[in-house]
Amino acid sequence: MLFSGAGELFQNIYIFTWDVLLALVNVVTPNKKPGTVVPHGLPGAGGKWPKFVAPKKGDSRSCCPALNALANHGILSHDGRNIKFTEITDTVRTTFNFAPSFCRFVPSFMAQKLHKNYKTDACDLADISLHNAIEHDASLTRQDAKFDPDQGKPYLPLINDLLASATGKDEDGNLMLTTGDLSRYSSKRRTEARATNPDFTLDTFHKLFGSSNSSTLLTIFGGKVADLEPFLTEERIPEQWEPRVRSRMGLTFLAFNRTVLTVEKGIKEGTAPITEETALLS
């Protein structure tokens, strides 16, 4: 056990050192040009995504909209089963333009929590919804596991409320979520979840993990509500969409954490009213 813990520590040191180097490369190299973020010849290149097929009975889906979308488009196995952790790393990298350090760390963490080997083992998407591993209470797109143990389907009342909270607009007048919007909505969500869920838990790690999840809506998706609506409600990638992060080496932890910490810093638990919708969950 001691060796295993030491191994994980050195692996994390390696990944985060790697991440800093990738962030430096991003500083000194030009961004990818619009239309070229997804590499040529891969699904999504030039904004051309494989056909969306909604999950069928028996298909495995997770608490993660991004992974579910990859399965719904057949970029990962459509049934969501027996997917290697290394395949998740490679596919998330090329589809969403996260940095390779980022794409290595998260599936490695998944494998660790599932007591599996990152390099050799596989999982079903539903496995990722292990409570208080990746999945956590007060999600912005799912009811708490107390009320929905499956976690494989988006909860539309929450998502619609989230999108309706957007206050920003871009230069073309498109409605946008902002860091302030996500902080306010996360405050409301945590307050309501704590009040209605007798089994509610949310430690510091999962608070930051929750803010990380919500921050991808601002970074990879740029906060644009018109793009987020199909992605969150149907777990479908919009036609002609491409990642909004165009950094040469992708979105690094170092760059990403600026958004995460801004969102988390703005969350004020206990200041949001209980709505009629969520009160019904108690």
Results as ranks from 00 to 15, higher is better:
Ile75Gly: 13
Leu76Ala: 10
Cys103Pro: 09
Tyr118Gly: 05
Asn82Glu: 07
Met110Asn: 01
Lys116Thr: 08
Ala111Lys: 01
Phe109Leu: 02
Gly74Lys: 00
Thr94Pro: 04
Gly74Trp: 00
Ile75Asn: 05
Ile83Ser: 06
His115Phe: 09
Ala71Thr: 07
His73Lys: 03
Val92Met: 11
Ser101Gln: 09
Arg81Phe: 07
Lys119Met: 10
His78Arg: 15
Gln112Val: 03
Asp90Met: 14
Asn117Gly: 11
Phe98Asn: 03
Ser108Pro: 07
His78Met: 12
Gly80Arg: 03
Ala99Asn: 05
Asn117Met: 08
Val92Thr: 08
Asn82Trp: 08
Thr89Gly: 13
Thr91Val: 12
Asp90Lys: 15
Ser108Met: 07
Phe96Cys: 12
Lys84Asn: 04
Thr86Trp: 13
Thr91Glu: 13
Ile83Glu: 06
Tyr118Pro: 09
Thr89Ala: 15
Lys119Pro: 00
Arg93Thr: 05
Lys84Glu: 03
Ile75Pro: 14
Ser77Val: 03
Met110Asp: 00
Phe98Tyr: 04
Ile75Met: 05
Leu76Arg: 09
Glu87Ala: 10
Gly74Cys: 09
Asp90Ala: 14
Gly80Asp: 08
Gly74Phe: 00
Phe98Arg: 00
Lys119Arg: 03
Glu87Trp: 05
Met110Cys: 02
Phe109Lys: 12
Lys113His: 11
Thr95Arg: 03
Asn97Val: 02
Lys116Ala: 13
Asn82Phe: 03
Lys116Met: 14
Thr86Gln: 14
Val106Gly: 00
Lys119Gln: 11
Arg104Lys: 09
Ala111Val: 02
Tyr118Cys: 04
Ile88Phe: 08
His73Cys: 13
Ser101Phe: 05
Ile83Ala: 01
His78Ala: 13
Asn72His: 11
Phe105Trp: 10
Cys103Val: 01
Ser77Cys: 02
Ile83Gln: 03
Lys113Thr: 15
Thr89Lys: 15
Glu87His: 13
Ile88Met: 06
Ala71Pro: 05
Ile75His: 07
Leu114Met: 10
Asn97His: 05
Pro100Phe: 13
Met110Thr: 01
Ser108Leu: 09
Met110Gly: 01
Ser108Trp: 07
Lys84Cys: 07
